[in-house]
Design a protein around this nucleic acid. Structure first.
Lengths: 337, 337
DNA sequence: ACTTTTTATGTATGCGATTTCATAATAAAA
DNA sequence: TTTTATTATGAAATCGCATACATAAAAAGT
């Protein structure tokens, strides 16, 4: 590896002069800039980013700890985050959540000297928030948030659940299944709470909610469907707490011979791009924003970073949801299933 | 930030002793190990990864330069790569290809002191290969390969194209559309070549291939469909050079009122997971391997890294394809479209 | 022409770890 | 007990760059 010292020798100047032209300081004469530039070219010099960040204390990289990519929501956010960060001059170190055991990842990230952290992996009572705050590293949680607050960008999950309940109730459904992930995450918890309270408000005496708490793996979702549809009283609609779940649920349901929405209605949450595909036309609930939560999160994060520790203001954003009614929900037909 | 020096002071030992326990050298007495460990805990010390890599010359991070995530193929490879790397103790810096202009990304990556580079973004005559080879950094190209060879893991694209031609021909189709991306990438070029030569071999005197070279954006694909289906002689089948293209093409076709495969057959390449969904059941051509190309690539890359520069052997893997016949291709019916 | 300010450059130091080398302390061999 | 081998520890150099500081040279004021 060619170092700035060798460039200096080649150019016949001191290493600090080389460093100066590297950082295009205007304190260098045109002649020396030329000599140094030429020497760099000749030696095919590339500055060592590691060394730079050791002294500058800024690595120009951020860490993303994301939910798994088999969920299209995270496909979209990951894409947005990486691209926006790049645009702003930051590299992104990507990690995927590892079924609950994120501590190893957190340890890695905290010793990596990243300039900022954006994560979707927190639990409502996750000890990581504490670590994050004492570490002084700018961070923002997206999608999920923590009980204690902190910096976050989220959807109003409670409202989303409620809207689903209203929508399905108005279509006449009485027996509704809920499929969601772990209740110690704010998204699933909020959506479930809003949903059940929405149902309750409608005073559906005869209404029933079948709760399925899964780990969001395809197998677990399929199992939930099997169990639910195997009952004597089958649901005529299911509220999937994410579009990813909805899409897998649909797959299983179709495999079992059900038609959507004729036999059973499905409503998701997140309004992912894929849900708009003609093969799905999924009814869903999502934020009224043309930027996804990842994008909003990374914008805030980078603002925070560039503002500096002194004038870092808290980030607490909750987006209001809207219903995107498409073709997977329809009116209850007696005797349909 | 707490440094090892402060830990040393707290523990009453020298900084080098702290470093030794950090790297669990066995040259430290149990008492000192205990003292140092305690001091680390007390001060909430985290080693500075940047400093470590400056001296050790290994950053334990690799760079991934991937195709865009709106292509599900890259969703799968990205996931595999990041997770496998993590498993092996490597962090992954992710970049997404930027419509042809990858030089900025390459520059960044080359000065980042990564331990290895895995990339899907090369063109057949891309100058990056040269850079890669002189840089001495272990690398492997996946999916696409370079004219000059280098290290790669790919599908036999020529064969894949040929299989598509055979399959569609055997179903009786004479007018077939091809939709693919830029011909300066080995994937699209190889698939196109195999396809047209396959068609030619079948001596389909009356056969016609409509070539559509797009930039793989949704709009471009939709435009290609519009143009193709607007002709007097419409194709009765289309060979989409990737599943991503096939899925978007299907969307557009369905929007225009066509039924698949009754009105028009579609065959893709890559055998992405999503293509198996009941809403698609896409006929496709893919490698006969339970590991995707990204996974194979990263395994080879990490082997290379750990083998050391001395015993790094070239990586040249070409997987043979197989046809996965599902529900989007069917026999030609005269007068169908 | 002499002082003062500005500009260009080099020297030296430090970022936070790893690692070589020298040495003190201890254990093993004689 | 003396010599030798072994083990534990610290001092110091180093990695590649940025930057504070000192200073020489040039430009500007007076």
């Amino acid at each position: 590896m060619i170092s700035s010292k060798e460039v200096a020798r080649e150019a016949g100047v001191s290493q600090s002069t080389v460093s100066r032209v590297l950082n295009n300081s205007n304190r260098v004469s045109k002649e020396n800039v030329a000599k140094v530039t030429e020497a760099m070219r000749k030696l095919n010099y590339r500055p060592n980013a590691i060394a730079r960040s050791l002294v500058s204390k800024r690595s120009k990289t951020i860490a993303l700890i994301s939910g798994p990519l088999h969920n299209p929501f995270f496909v979209e956010t990951t894409s947005s985050i990486v691209n926006y960060a790049k645009e702003k001059g930051y590299n992104t170190n990507v990690f995927f959540e590892n079924n609950g055991d994120n501590m190893a990842v957190y340890e890695t990230v905290l010793s990596m000297q990243v300039d900022g952290i954006i994560l979707s992996s927190v639990f409502m009572d996750d000890p990581i928030l504490q670590e994050l705050q004492t570490s002084q590293i700018p961070y923002v949680m997206f999608n999920r948030k923590h009980n204690e607050g902190g910096n976050f960008v989220e959807l109003n999950n409670y409202q989303a659940g409620k809207m689903a309940a209203d929508h399905l109730y108005q279509l006449g459904h009485k027996h509704i299944g809920f499929i969601g992930g772990p209740m110690y995450t704010s998204t699933f918890y909020g959506r479930y709470l809003g949903f059940t309270e929405g149902i309750a408000e409608q005073t559906m005496e005869t209404g029933k909610v079948f709760l399925n708490e899964t780990d969001t793996s395809e197998e677990a979702i399929a199992d939930a469907i099997f169990k639910m549809m195997g009952r004597k009283e089958r649901p005529t609609a299911v509220f999937a707490a994410t579009d990813a779940i909805a899409i897998t649920a649909m797959d299983t349901l179709m495999e079992l011979g059900y038609r959507v929405p004729e036999d059973i209605s499905i409503c998701g949450v997140d309004n992912v791009r894929m849900a708009r595909h003609h093969a799905f036309e999924l009814t869903t609930i999502g934020a009224q924003s043309n930027k996804n939560l990842g994008r909003l999160g990374i914008e805030h994060l980078i603002n925070s970073i560039e503002a500096g520790k002194e004038n870092m203001s808290p980030i607490q954003v909750t987006l209001e949801p809207a219903l995107y009614q498409r073709k997977t929900t329809g009116p209850f037909k007696p005797g349909s299933v």
